[in-house]
Simulated assay, not measured.
Amino acid sequence: MNKSYSSIIRFGGLLIFILFFYLKGFSQSQMIYKTVGKDSLFLELNLPDEQFKRPVPLLVFYFGGGWNTGTIEQFRPYAEHFTKRGLATALVDYRVYKRDGTTPFASLRDAKSAIRFLRKNADSLGIDANKIIASGGSAGGHLASATALIEGFNEFTDDLDISCKPNALVLFNPVFDNGPAGYGYDRIKEQYHQFSPLHNIKKGAPPTIILLGTKDHLVPVETARYFTMQMERLGSRCELHLYDGQKHGFFNYNRSLEYYQKTLEQADLFIQSLGWLEKQG
């Protein structure tokens, strides 16, 4: 697809979202976090009511879709919940193959750019720059974990003095193994050594929660257990929550209300444990 046409589609879709929420009486901010050539990349920032003391922690969502497709709508139900609970939330649009003809490496560069943009502008946005949580599902879970663990794949226009590393991770069936036995190796190939979070776990990784179904055909339970073990071995907190019999994508609101609610509750409890959310009555 022509890149300028892709930008028009993105911008037009965001205008529809703005109009919809304006008519419904909700306020949300759409902003450009990065421009690549003629492409403008957007994120949607949601801030809690003024009753919450600023600055507030931020939860950043990356949609799934194999770095091929997807939209910010995937995590809107989660974002609405956490914004009502007192967090700022950001739904990040990033480049994908079917829309932009790009590689997974471009998706990661975008994911890092989004956090740098939000951290750079934290004061003016009312965000706590030291309380940023990255989250996502499937390939979006890869991007979230990669912002924390992968050193390379930075946009050349980014200010590398601004850290892209989040302070916590909430991962929904993340494809964090991109090696020969993992997901996406046919596209990543030997660069998996630098691109795969499973192969780049290091001391100082942020506290992490992983939510995974036991029947996931893309993320074996053994892989998640190994990731958890390695994180803990190096001194980082890592919780693995398994959901019996559930398949890839089980947590999505439009897939199962039951498991959406269960994973939402577990993520909420995890963020409470960090001291960044009030306990619910």
Rank of each mutant, 00 (worst) to 15 (best):
A114N: 11
M229Q: 15
I210N: 07
K202H: 15
S236E: 03
S113C: 03
L169E: 04
K112F: 04
R233D: 11
L125C: 11
A129E: 12
N173I: 03
E190L: 13
S236I: 00
E222F: 01
L160N: 14
K203A: 11
A122R: 08
H199K: 13
D158T: 11
A168W: 11
A134R: 00
L108W: 01
D216M: 02
A181S: 14
V175D: 11
M231I: 02
D158M: 02
I132V: 14
R187K: 15
A122G: 05
E190K: 14
E155D: 15
I132Q: 05
S138F: 10
C164Q: 10
S145E: 04
E190V: 11
K165L: 09
A111W: 02
G126K: 06
D186V: 10
D177S: 15
A114E: 05
S163K: 09
M229H: 14
P174C: 12
P197D: 06
T223S: 13
M229N: 12
R187I: 08
T157K: 05
L125S: 08
G235F: 04
S124K: 14
P180E: 13
G136C: 09
G182R: 06
V221I: 07
E190H: 13
L149F: 09
F117L: 11
K203V: 14
A122W: 09
Y192M: 10
Q230K: 15
K202R: 15
E232P: 01
L218Q: 07
G179C: 11
S236M: 09
Y192R: 08
I209D: 02
V219M: 00
S113Y: 07
S163F: 10
L169Y: 12
Y192N: 10
A111H: 02
R187W: 10
N167Q: 13
D158A: 04
P220R: 00
M229I: 04
S124D: 12
S163P: 02
T157E: 15
L198V: 11
G137P: 06
D161V: 10
R237V: 08
I132F: 04
Y192I: 03
K131F: 05
T228P: 04
K165N: 06
D159V: 11
A224E: 08
R225S: 11
L171C: 13
D159Y: 02
S163H: 10
Y226D: 14
S113P: 04
A134I: 08
Y185T: 05
L169Q: 07
G126N: 12
G179M: 12
H199M: 12
G182V: 13
F195G: 09
I115A: 08
D110F: 01
A146K: 07
H199C: 13
L108D: 02
R109S: 08
T223M: 15
N121R: 09
T208A: 09
I162C: 02
G137T: 00
K165R: 15
A205G: 11
T208H: 01
L149N: 07
T228C: 14
P180N: 11
Y226A: 09
G179A: 09
K131A: 13
L234N: 08
A111I: 03
L198K: 10
Y185D: 13
T214F: 03
S135L: 07
I162A: 10
G140R: 04
S145G: 06
